Amino acid sequence: MDYQGDIIRPPSEAFSIILQVTVGCSHNHCTFCGAYRDPEKRFQVKPWDRIEADLDFAARFCRRQTTLFLADGDALAMDDDRLIHLLRTIRHKLPWVRRVGSYATCQNIRTKSDEQLRNYQTLGLRRLYMGLETGHDPTLKAIAKGVDSQAMIEAGQRIRAAGIFLSVTCLLGIAGTEFSLDHARATADTLNRMQPHQIAVLTLMLLPNTPLHRLASMGRFIMPDQEGLFQELRALLAGLGTSRTQFHANHASNYFSLSGRLPKDREQMLAIIDQALAGTMALKPEGVRGL
C-alpha cells in the first residue's frame, strides 16, 4: 500500500483497510492540530493509478477485513465524480467490504448536495467522523475551525438525513481555563441539536508544532488541570439530552476510560467521573497518555 506521511485514523477503524486517497487535510488551519503540518505534506488528491494499485493490493491480501477507511484528513474534498468513481470501484474490487468510512470537515460537507450525500451512502459510504471539538463559538473562532456552531449543526443534521452514521469528536481543554465550563455547556447544546449516533471525547494534548502550543508557552493559553478537565467532562455529559447515542471518552489521551449509551448509562458514567473528582480511582499516568 502506498502511504505518504503519518496516517491518522479513528480508533474504531483499527481493523479496517486503510486506503489513502488524499494527502493531508483540506483545511489544515486548526491551531491545536499537528497532524498535517509537515510542509512536504500539502493537501492533494492522490493520482488514480496509485489508488487503484492499492485497491488491487487489498483485493489480494485484505479479504478478511470488512470495513475500509479513506485517509487522510477529508476524502469529501474530492469532487463528486471522482468520489463516486472511487466508491463504485471499491464495491467492484472489494465486494465483501460492508462499510466505508472517512473523516469529514464541515466545510466539505457543505459543498455536497443532499442528493450527493445520499448517493455516497447508497454506494457504501456509511460512516463519517466529524471534528466538532467545541460548540462554543468564541473558541471555534480562536482555534480557527473556520465555521461556527450553527454550520456544524446543519452539516451534522444533513449527514444523518442522508442515512450516514455520524460520529462527532469533542476536545476537553480546548477552551482553556477561562471558558472551560462555557465550552462544555455549549458543546452539549450543539450535540443535542446535531444528534450524532456517536460522541467521542478526547483530551487536548499540546503538540510542539502547533500555534496553540506556542500560545501556551507564552502564557496566553492555560490548560485546565485534571480537576478542571473532569468538571468539564461532567458538565458536558450532564448537559446532553435524551437522544439515544453512544458516548465514549476512552481515547488514549484521556485520564480514564468512560463508555456507555445515552441516556440509559448517564448516571453510571457520572458516578465514575465523581470518583475521579474525589480522587478514589486510579488515573492513567501522564507517560501513558497519547494521541
Rank of each mutant, 00 (worst) to 15 (best):
D2G: 05
Y3M: 06
I7R: 04
I8A: 03
P10A: 07
P10E: 10
P10W: 06
E13M: 12
A14G: 13
F15S: 14
F15W: 03
S16I: 07
I17V: 14
I18P: 02
L19H: 06
T31E: 11
C33T: 04
A35R: 00
D38A: 06
K41S: 12
R42V: 12
V45F: 01
I51T: 11
I51H: 01
A53P: 07
A59R: 12
C62L: 00
R64K: 13
T66N: 14
T66H: 13
F69G: 11
L70P: 10
L76C: 08
D80Y: 03
L86T: 08
T89Q: 10
K93G: 10
K93I: 07
K93W: 03
V100F: 01
Y103P: 13
Y103F: 15
T111F: 06
Q116D: 13
Q121C: 13
Q121N: 15
Q121Y: 07
L123M: 13
M130E: 05
T134V: 08
D137I: 02
L140G: 08
A142K: 12
Q150K: 12
G156Y: 00
R158T: 04
R158V: 09
R160A: 11
R160N: 12
A161Y: 02
G163I: 04
I164Y: 07
F165L: 12
L166V: 04
L166E: 01
G173D: 05
L181T: 12
A184T: 10
T187V: 10
A188N: 10
A188F: 02
M194E: 02
Q195F: 00
Q198M: 08
Q198D: 14
A200L: 06
T203Y: 02
L206I: 05
N209M: 03
S217H: 11
M218E: 14
F221E: 02
D225F: 03
E232M: 02
E232Y: 05
R234G: 14
L237W: 03
A238W: 03
G239I: 10
T242Q: 15
S243L: 01
Q246M: 09
H248K: 11
N250E: 04
S253T: 11
S253K: 05
S257A: 12
K264F: 00
K264P: 00
E267M: 09
E267K: 03
E267N: 14
E267T: 07
A271R: 11
I273S: 08
I273V: 15
D274Y: 01
P285M: 06
L291T: 08
L291S: 09
